[in-house]
Write a protein that binds this DNA or RNA. Structure first.
Lengths: 121, 121
DNA sequence: CATGTATTCAACCAATCGGTTGACAACAAC
DNA sequence: GTTGTTGTCAACCGATTGGTTGAATACATG
C-alpha cells in the first residue's frame, strides 16, 4: 500500500463535489455529462474531478463511443478503511489499557506495586 | 455528521506528515515539540499541522504548563470509517447484483426476457 | 524580576487547487 | 464530408495550502 496512493485517496475525498460523485456512482455507473448535470459548474470542471478520483484509483472509466462511463472501484475503499481502522483500534486499545490501569490504581493497589516503578510524581 | 466536518477530516489526513503524526499519537500522547522533533521542519509548521488535525476533531490538546500534549480522538475515526463503508458496501452489493444478473443472462434466459426491453443495440 | 522553554500568532512566499473559457479530438448520424 | 455530441487538454485566475521567519504569549526557575 503506497503512501502517495493513500494521499491521493484522502485528498480526492476531501472535496464535497467529489464525495457526492462517489455517492452517486455507488448507486450506478454514469457518464461524465450525467454526473455534471446537477452541479452548477462546467463539464470540464467535473471532468477534472473525475480525473482526480481516477488517479486515486477510486473510479475507472470505460469507453463507449464518445461516452466515458464512470465506475466506482469498491475494493480500493478497503485499503483506506484498513488504514483508518489500524490507528483507531490502536488508540482505542491504548485508551482501554489506560482505563484498566486507572481502575487498578483505585482498586487493586497490591497488584500495582510491581508496575509503579518510575511513574511516581 | 456534518459535511464540512467530513471535508476537514479527509483533508487533514491527505498530508503524509499529518498521517505520520496520527500514527505516532496512536502509540502515545506527545507534546508539540516531541512531535516536531523527527521532521525536517520548524516547530511552527508542526504546530500548524496539529491545528489542522484539531480542527478536524482528530486530535485534542490538554494544558500542562507551557506544554500542549496532543491526544488522538479514536472515536472520530469511526465516523469516517462509516462514511467510507456505506459507499463501499453499496457499490459492492451493486457489483454482486450485476454478477447475479449476468449469471441469469447466461443460464435462465426465459427469466430475462421480461427485463430486456430497451437494451438491444 | 530576568531568563529560558514551549507554543502560538502574523506576515510572507511559492506551489497547488478548484473553477473558468476556448480549442481540439473522437465518434455518430445525417 | 459536414454537423452535433461527448469529453479532454491548455492557459488562465483567485483562494488555499504548506512551508518559512520573527514577534508575542505563557509558564517555570534561578
Amino acid at each position: 500500500m503506497d503512501d502517495s496512493q493513500l494521499t491521493r485517496m484522502f485528498a480526492a475525498l476531501a472535496d464535497p463535489t467529489r464525495r457526492d460523485i462517489v455517492t452517486r456512482l455507488a448507486v450506478s455507473d454514469a457518464t461524465v455529462g450525467e454526473l455534471a448535470d446537477p452541479y452548477g459548474m462546467s463539464i470540464q470542471a467535473v471532468s477534472k474531478h473525475i480525473k482526480v478520483l481516477a488517479d486515486a484509483g477510486l473510479v475507472t472509466q470505460r469507453k463507449d463511443a464518445q461516452r466515458r462511463p464512470c465506475h466506482l472501484e469498491a475494493e480500493v475503499f478497503d485499503l483506506m478503511t484498513k488504514w483508518i481502522e489500524r490507528y483507531r483500534q490502536q488508540a482505542q486499545e491504548r485508551y482501554e489499557r489506560l482505563d484498566a490501569v486507572l481502575a487498578e490504581m483505585r482498586g487493586d493497589k497490591h497488584l500495582n506495586q510491581q508496575r509503579q516503578q518510575g511513574a511516581a510524581s
